[in-house]
Each structure stands twice: as C-alpha cells, then as structure tokens.
Design a protein around this nucleic acid. Structure first.
Lengths: 191, 191, 191, 191
DNA sequence: TATTAACCGAGACGGTACGTCTCGTCTTCAA
DNA sequence: TTGAAGACGAGACGTACCGTCTCGGTTAATA
C-alpha cells in the first residue's frame, strides 16, 4: 500500500530514521521504556514532527511495526499436515522469539492498554490464523483431512500456547515441544 | 499486643485500603495508568508509607494480587475427565474475564518489563498447572487415563487459547467453545 | 523582542510575577523558609519553568535581587566629608533595614552556604565600597583630605559595623550612632 | 552524678558524642546542611532522644556551641593599648577563621531565622564587648585613656571589619591589616 | 530487695519539598 | 506547507528529613 503504488510519500522526511530509532529503543529499553522524546533524540527529528504524524506512542509503534514486520513469511510446504503444522509452530515461535518479532511480543503485551495496539495485534494474529488455514487447506487438497475442521479453533489451539509462552511466561518452546503440541492436537483434527 | 500471638504485623497500617485502592485504580486506569501517588491519594495512606513497604509499583501490584486473588479456586469434580476439563476451562475463562482476574490479564501482560511481575505470573501459571494436574490425577484414579500425560503441555494448551481470547482478541469464549476446545484435545490425551 | 527593541527576551514568560513572589515569600518566611514550590504556587508559574531558568534556589534569589535591588542609590553631597560620611552610613543602614534591602540582610547571611549568594554579596558590598570611595574623592577635590587614604580600609571600617548589626545582632543603628561612628574614624582619616 | 559532683546529670547519655557529631557535620555540610537525622546517625543516638532533649535544630546547635566554644579566651596584656587592641583583633580573626569559630560564623549568620541563635549571638558578641572593655579598662588604669570611651561602639568598630572579611568577602585579614585597623581607630579613641 | 520512674532504641507514620523526567500543547521563525 | 527550535503547564518519579507517636526494654535511685 504505502509501497510501490501509493499516492504520495505519506510520512515525514526522516521516516526511515524514525522507525529505526523506534526499533532500536524498543530493543534497548522495552515498550514501557520507549519515549517519544527518546525517539526524537535518536532519530534527529523534532518532537513536534512526531506528534504531527502520529497522535501517540502506540500509534507510532504500530506504524513502525507495520513497516518493519509486515513482510509475509512464506508458509513452508513439507508435504504432510503434521510436518506443515510443526513447521508453522516453529516458525511462529521463532518470529516471536527473535528479531523484530521479539519486540512484537513486548508490544503485543500492551494490547489491553491501547486500541491501536489491539488492532495491530489483531492484524498479526489474523495473519497467523490465515497461515493455519492455508496449511489445513493444503491438507484437505491432499486428502489428509476430509471431515470439517474449525480453522479458527485450531488456530487458537496452536497459537494460544505459543503466544502465552512468548508474552507471559517467556519459556522457550523447543523443537520437541513443538512436535508434542502438534501431536496432542492431530488426533482431534479429523473427527 | 498488636497480634494475638500471630507471627508479626507485616504490613502498613492501612494495608486493606491500599490493596483496595490498587484494584480500583487498576480497573479504572489499567496497569500503565496506575501510579503510586494515585494509590496514596485514594487509599488515604501517605506516599512515603507505600515506598517504605514496597520498592516499586510492580512490587505493590504483585502484593495486592497475592492478597486479593490468591484464593484457591476449587476445582470442580464432575465425575468425568471431559466434564472436569470443561469446567476448568469455563472457570479460567470466567476468572480472566471478570473481577480481579480481568485485571490480572493486564498485569500479566507486563511480565517482560519486571521480574516481580514475572514471578507473580509464574505463581499464577503454576497454580493453573496444578489444577490441571489435579484433574488428570483424578481421571487416572478413575481409570479414564492410563498412559503418560504431560500436564504442563496440557495446561498450556488449555490456557493458551483462553488467554489469547481474553487478552488479545477479546472474543468471549462461549460454553460451546469450551466444549469444542476440550473435545479437540481429548483424543490426543490418552495414546 | 517583546520589549521595545531589547536584544533578546532572556527569561521566562512570567518573570516579573516570579520575582515579586520571591520578594513576597522572602518577607513572609525568610530565606530559609523560601521554597521553589512556594514560588511556583504564588507566581502561578510551573515549577518546571523555574528549574528551566535557574538551577537552584540561591540562583533564583540572586537573580531577583539583581533585578529588584540593583538600582544605584545616589550618594548625597552635603558639602563636607563628615556630612557625606554620616549620610552614607544612614543611607546604608536604611537600605539594609527596610524594603527589599532588609530582605537582603537575610539573604546575605547565607553567603557562606552558597557561592552564588557570595557573589551577590560581593557585588552589593563592592557597590557600597565604591560609594565610600566616591565620598573621599569628593573630599579630596575639596581639599578636606590631603594625605593618602586607604579607601578599602575605610570602607571596611564603615560598612563592617553596619553589616554586623544588620545581619547578626539586628540592633538598629540610630542617627546618633551614625555620627559617633563617623566621629570615631575621622581623626584617623588624614594622618 | 556521673559528673564529679555536679548537681544533676542534665543531658542524654551520649551527649559528648552528640556535640562532636554536630561539630563534625557543621564542618562538613554547613549549618543549612546539618540535619537532626544526620546527627542521630553519626552520634549513634536515636533521633527520638535528640528531640527529647532539644526542641529544634538551632537549640541543639546552640547547646553544642555553649559546650564547645564557650571557653573564655584570655585577653593578652601587652602593656599598651595599641598592642592590646592589635592582639585582640588578631585573636578574633583567628577565632572566626579557623576551628570551631569558623563554624560559628556560619551559625551566627542564621541569627535572623531563629531566636535561639539570636541569643547565642548575643552571648558571643557580649563576650567580645567584655574583652574590649577589659582592654580599655587596663588602658585607663595605665593612664593611656582619660576621656569617656564607648566600649560598645569600639567593639562594633573592631569586630565589624573582621566579621565582614571572614564571613562575607572571605579576604583574610593580615597582621599589617590588623595594625592599620587599630591605627585608624586610635586617634578617635581619646578625645 | 523490690519498685518505680526516667530514659532509651526501634521504627512507623503523615507531611512537605526536593530536583528530575516525560508528556502533549503551543508559538515563533525559516525554508 | 512543512519542519526545527524550544518554552510551557501538568504531574509522577523516588528520596530526604521533618516532627510525632507508640512500643518494649533497660537502668538507676529510692523505699
């Protein structure tokens, strides 16, 4: 959208520097420690400019994430439903555990405090759910699944534990955990 | 004198009023909007006294939760594993969706920012795991389950979706959803 | 700029109100009882603004005095050295005993505690010494004094007792005292 | 009792330690920086005890000075009025410039803020006047002075410059200065 | 020897002010 | 129109002392 066919520049002069500063500071101080003034200092842009373009800190952070994290990861096709699901779990775990996604976990934790972040979380989670649906769709095309599958429920069951660990308990989810998780769900998949 | 043989006073004079004020303000402003000065104002206790007893806002909030939310919910015994699990899911859903537990969701979201809250989260999650273990223990005693069960994994699988809906997507989890959730997991429970 | 051609604004918006508040509070509570927060309250200016412009209470007080007390009093010319000296003594006594100068006595008492106030005291005292020199200069022009006169020593001898009474003992110095003081010094003046 | 026949104990247990702490802290932090809690900490005495015996900080400080500085300095008898006066000036200069007397200058500066300190100042200044009177009395006995001498005025004329230099301008008063000071006054002494 | 009164330490309390920080708004000026 | 510069009111931060209070324990002189 903002990319190749967008109507105008849409954004202040040093936008790239701003988003970089947000990510840097998020990594260094966490979401709660991030301040608008800090972003202004680090990006070399005036505080006024930031407020002109984004009404609040969550809005700025959300914009940064839409720029930086929105890249659609490919959903690996391993040939089997189990393989796809395990790969998906590991991919999401990795996303939330390292790089900008790790910052996302911190940001998404503040969903309850700000509607802007809630929207962002909804977008990210929706994308994840879509990936789940893509995997089950493939499985159905292969004939691995024949009965009705509630994609939404499956997404909750897969992503719930992942997010819970990433956001609340911060326990890493190992490869074995990922397989165990999927194996616990597979028997109930095709009822 | 002060206590009729109890160990020690342990806590400032107006402790009850303080914890009440914390819960009130948490409900009204959220965790991020909660301030020590606000608690002092509302509880009628001096700011100095708060700092005398708790070193920081997260410590105060954690103490409040230990006082107010630590009551051990009974784990209903319905006579079947499925019934017990459904009851457990509904109980947790209710807990996170209303009353002080609703505040807990907001507080637990800040796990990453403060070790004190991380400890609190560990306690709450640990209690949850214990409940799950109690239910599976009963099922094993009844002979409903014979093989090995990973209680921790099961706890994550149950709580993950509940937490995700309560905290991130804010979609309520209906009675039918609770049953569907459990039914999706039951087949994988006893290999 | 806001002024009629002055080079720069140099000072916060409500500067006049601030200095007035400082003098009021100094009169009411004394230097020790003066607080930055009190000045902020009374002047209607935010505490932050005060700290933005002056780093400390003594700096603020010194600035106030430079604004309010810096007016150069004329040194009366009575036609004789004795008359001039008596007039000078009474003028300085009056300065330190009433109006803003009375507050100055309180402020100057804290010279030892703060270098900023020490500088202020030095300025005021230097001005007083200059007045003494002006008087002896006139006397020399008249031919009343021919030999060498140590203006510095004379200033110390005249101002020392005045300041001592104003700052430490708070005994008023009467008209007769002023004459006696000068008469005690005159014989040694032209030696 | 603890004393060797004194009428009553009159004072808390660790009084010596308390006064020592007051002097130490006065030297280190100045009068304004001196706090009751600091004295308690340093002297190893409880804050409550201090308040039990002295109602306020100035009262405590005054008591300390009466204990520590009240020792009557001998007034040297040099055989001539001039010599006695010069010796007196140098003695006072030394007193105000070093040791506990140096602290006295800081303390006496707060005369205006507290009646307790004002009384102390009165005692110190009175003692000074008595020294001057002793010197002039000797001179009269010798026949050096015959006319009337206002001892109080002379005391102010001597102490004023000394105090001014020690406390306000912090210019040291050299031996030559002391002689010049006395020589400026001597001609006016005996009319 | 037993009593009693004075003194002690301990530490909690409400309160005021400190000096710093970030917020979000605002005005002014230059390009 | 856009942005840079930066002052401003608001208000929380965490700390330091203030002066008061209650609580047990100890000491020392008396009865």
């Amino acid at each position: 959208m903002s990319a190749t066919g967008g109507p105008t520049a849409r954004g202040p002069r040093g936008e790239a520097a701003i988003h970089a500063a947000v990510l840097d500071l998020l990594a260094a101080e966490g979401y709660a420690g991030l301040t608008i003034e800090g972003v202004a200092r680090r990006s070399g842009v005036n505080k006024t400019t930031l407020y002109r373009w984004w009404p609040s800190k969550p809005a700025l952070v959300a914009a940064t994430f839409r720029h930086a994290v929105a890249r659609d990861l490919p959903v690996p096709d391993t040939g089997t439903l189990r393989g796809d699901l395990v790969a998906l779990v590991r991919s999401k775990t990795a996303f939330l555990g390292e790089g900008p996604g790790r910052l996302a976990a911190d940001v998404l934790a503040h969903t309850g405090a700000d509607p802007e972040l809630a929207r962002l979380a909804g977008e990210v989670l929706g994308q994840h759910s879509a990936h789940v649906a893509e995997v089950t769709g493939r499985a159905r095309a292969r004939g691995e699944v024949t009965g009705p599958v509630d994609d939404r429920l499956l997404a909750d069951l897969l992503l719930g534990p992942i997010w819970l660990r990433a956001v609340v308990t911060h326990r890493p989810l190992s490869a074995a955990d990922a397989e165990a998780l999927v194996d616990a769900l597979l028997p109930g998949l095709d009822g």
